[in-house]
């Protein structure tokens, strides 16, 4: 599975890292690598999040991240290979 790197611009406010990390935990996705640093704007920070996801799961992570109020923008840093379009979906389960 290809690794995908997300560049996430967030508001530089308390609790933002917990919101992002918590979202991955709650939605049962793994973070492979995470770094947080300043941007030229003191009101924002930049997170680089590397995930081992593709297709539906990757789209969901991006969509759910984007819903966090403190997340301003998300850019996917596309690796060399073209992104495969996968029409997968949630697996079946009994609830």
């Amino acid at each position: 599975m290809a690794q995908h790197s997300l560049e996430v611009i967030v508001e530089n406010s308390p609790g933002v890292l917990a919101r992002v990390a918590g979202l991955f935990s709650r939605r049962a996705y793994n973070i492979e690598r995470l770094s947080v640093g300043p941007t030229s704007n003191p009101e924002t920070s930049k997170m680089e999040i590397v995930v081992n996801l593709e297709g539906h799961a990757l789209e969901q992570v991006i969509a759910q991240l984007d819903k966090l109020i403190n997340v301003i923008s998300i850019k996917e840093i596309v690796p060399n290979a073209a992104k495969a379009i996968v029409h997968d979906t949630q697996p079946d389960y009994q609830n």
């Binding site: 969509a63 819903k67 029409h87 949630q90």
Partner: peptide, 11 residues
């Protein structure tokens, strides 16, 4: 109205 719902469970 919620982009994360669109395609979440079903293509």
């Amino acid at each position: 109205v919620d982009p994360a719902e669109i395609g979440k469970n079903r293509f």
